[in-house]
């Protein structure tokens, strides 16, 4: 009941014109019809998917690389490094957004200051839609790496050493060992990380809200923000619920597809 009831309520709301007060009136599939004809919805859906496609691989590579470094025998100062890499996870996404907003501020940001000092032209981090999305991707990677790194460290430590020793005797170099031993051994973990990061990326909210409110303009308003705007600011909870239901379907599909892929590769 505890898990299903709020979800069921959302589903019911999505068929009504509920505005947060008064009695919701049943409007059939009106909300969904409006939704499929709404260009803003498609724009934010595309932008959300683009964000996920960009940030998930980046986060995967980053966290795996950091984890590999941290379990390697050749690395020094592991504890300190672990702390540093874990730091972003401890920061509230809102604060993270504010930090990155300051770093990439267009007029007086740190990054543009450095570019300016090096003799380059300051970039429009806040007013160019694609650059703004890039900042969001970088910030999301920064924030999400820590958690995935921990999962990877645990997985990497569980790969039996004997495999590496055998491979070394056979003359495999570091890259070959990584490709043929490490990657297959941590495949289930990779699957988990990719699944969690994709779902996380589709639901990114607080950080973006603090970073640039989905700006410039409405060009980077992701689905969750669209839900927030229609639901709370325009008090159109019925419509917002319909959008959430679509998002739920998308997330379910992602989860199911990834599971199917995982099962096939495991078989």
């Amino acid at each position: 009941m505890f898990f299903v009831w709020p979800g069921g309520l959302g589903l019911i709301y999505s068929f009504t014109d509920y505005s947060g007060l008064g009695t919701p009136e049943f409007v059939g599939t009106d909300n969904y019809e409006k939704l499929f004809a709404d260009p803003t919805f498609y724009q934010s859906l595309t932008r959300t998917l683009l964000f996920a496609v960009l940030s998930v691989p980046l986060m995967y590579v980053m966290s795996l690389a950091v984890a590999a470094l941290l379990v390697s025998n050749h690395t020094r100062g592991k504890t300190a490094a672990k702390l540093v890499f874990f730091f972003p996870w401890l920061i509230s996404p809102i604060v993270a957004g504010v930090i990155w907003r300051w770093m990439f501020g267009e007029s007086f940001g740190f990054v543009n200051y450095v570019i300016d000092r090096l003799g380059g032209n300051p970039l429009a981090w806040q007013t160019d839609p694609d650059l703004a999305l890039m900042v969001v991707v970088i910030a999301a990677t920064w924030g999400g790496t820590a958690f995935n790194m921990l999962i990877f460290i645990a997985a990497l430590k569980n790969v039996p050493r004997a495999y590496y020793e055998a491979a070394e005797i056979d003359g495999a170099n570091a890259w070959q060992r990584f490709r043929s031993i490490t990657l297959p051994s941590i495949a289930p973990t990779s699957f988990l990380v990719i699944l969690l990061s994709s779902l996380g990326a589709m639901k990114e909210f607080a950080m973006i809200q603090a970073l640039n409110e989905g700006g410039p303009g409405t060009s980077n308003v992701l689905l969750i923000q669209y839900i927030y705007e229609t639901g709370f600011q325009r008090a159109d909870i019925g419509y917002a619920s319909a959008v959430s239901m679509i998002l739920l379907l998308i997330l379910l599909t992602i989860a199911l597809v990834q599971m199917a892929v995982n099962r096939r590769s495991a078989a």
Binding site: F3, P6, G7, L9, G10, Y13, L195, L199, K203, F205, I224, I227, Y228, G231, F232, I237, A240, S241, S244, L247, L248, L251, L252, I254, A255, L256, M259, R263
Partner: peptide
């Protein structure tokens, strides 16, 4: 496998209901 699938799907579903969580 089936059970894990349902569980994961359920988590995804519960997470996709920000309206109930944002108050």
């Amino acid at each position: 496998m089936k059970r894990r699938l349902i569980l994961t799907a359920g988590t995804a579903g519960a997470a996709a209901l920000p309206l109930s969580a944002c108050g």
